[in-house]
């Protein structure tokens, strides 16, 4: 375990299998809505977490978007008006001025965990 891991408190959110591959789900984490995505990239399983609130529609829906990639960035398309967000950084692809919060997330055994 790295130093950082020791500093932060990792909290169990759900079983890995509760989120299907290449899909997202929304989790309640310290009163915030977090969209967690499991993505298979070139055979390697990755996990991302960003805030579930879409700054364009003001609705809590990011977790229900389609996952994919645009010019090598792994992104989710917000389901209402289809803006894309970089899952690694929370940056909106269409509008430089807009980004959403990201969260530390990991697989731990068969669990998915988030950290503050």
């Amino acid at each position: 375990m790295s130093n950082i891991d020791q500093q932060v408190a990792w909290i169990d959110i759900c079983k890995s299998e509760d989120i299907l591959p290449n899909m997202g789900r929304c989790a309640l984490f310290e009163n915030e809505q977090v969209a967690i995505f499991r993505v298979i990239e070139s055979g390697v399983e990755k996990i991302y977490a960003i805030n579930n609130h879409c700054p364009f529609s003001q609705a809590n829906i990011i977790s229900r978007g389609i996952v994919g990639c645009l010019s090598n960035k792994t992104v989710v398309a917000s389901p209402l008006y289809k803006q894309h967000f970089d899952l690694a950084t929370g940056q909106c692809i269409e509008d430089e001025a807009i980004s959403v919060k990201t969260y530390a997330v990991r697989f731990e055994g068969d669990m998915i965990q988030l950290a503050a």
Partner: peptide, 22 residues
């Protein structure tokens, strides 16, 4: 059906049209 479900737009996935408030 798996894995077709992951391809669907949210409207098809939830089998209803998403409204402006989700």
């Amino acid at each position: 059906e798996k894995p077709l479900h992951g391809l669907q737009d949210t409207n098809d996935y939830f089998m209803g049209n998403m409204q402006k408030d989700g």
